[in-house]
Design a protein around this nucleic acid. Structure first.
Lengths: 113, 113
DNA sequence: GGGGAATATTCCTGTCAAGGAATGTTGTGG
DNA sequence: CCACAACATTCCTTGACAGGAATATTCCCC
């Protein structure tokens, strides 16, 4: 997951990912659209591929890079654990947990608050 | 957003965030629990604060660092746009889009495939 | 108000990664 | 088989950043 963060923390790479959201793309096309030179694009794609954010499908002399959802799904799942920090709908859960804690303590000994 | 990625791409910082999920915490306590020296903890916290991932509340001589949800919420929202990549429930949308594309092409001229 | 706890900041060093330029590789069409 | 097109890979240089040690700051308490 940290590797995914590192990969996406690079502006050019982030833009590549956003570009690939529209569908598979070729190295040169990526370079044209983002104003990057071909070698840099290849290097960035290599990084993205190493962390599984991208997949390659060779076709003749050119290679189509395609976005892979798995790492993004992993990030999404991780963020779910923090949802209570911003989603007020999760306040109810907080209350439930608070209630459970109180109950547990009351069981063991006494209630603190 | 990229700044958030960069902040979270550092292992110690990532662990600090995960630790703060349990609630606000003090610099020294963070250092103890994660086996980090105080100066490094302060530095990491500064980075986290600069990107808004953390907030400080001074209390006497010590400072309680608290996790802020906003950047995480932003990440979560960004990932929603990619959900179709892994969530099969979104396949329906793909079909709709595919249909629209076909229709559009048929309108303009002819259909390629 | 002086000393110590809690934290912040600085300086230094080594490492690592991005960009640029050049070169290597591979596949394809003629 | 050759020349070119599409990529990949080096080499080099430079800048950013993390860790460590030392020092500076801030604030409470006696």
């Amino acid at each position: 997951m940290i590797a995914t963060f590192a990969a996406l923390s690079e502006p050019s790479r982030f833009r590549i990912v956003e570009l690939l959201r529209a569908g598979p793309c070729t190295v040169n096309v990526i370079g044209e659209r983002l104003g990057l030179q071909q070698p840099q694009v290849s290097k960035h794609l290599k990084v993205l591929k190493d962390v599984g954010l991208v997949d390659v499908e060779p076709r003749a002399t050119q290679r189509f890079y395609e976005l892979r959802g798995e790492p993004l799904r992993e990030l999404h799942a991780w963020l779910e654990d923090y949802r209570a920090l911003w989603d007020e709908r999760f306040d109810a859960i907080d209350e439930v947990l608070e209630g459970m804690k109180t109950k547990e303590k009351a069981h063991g000994r006494k209630q603190k608050k």
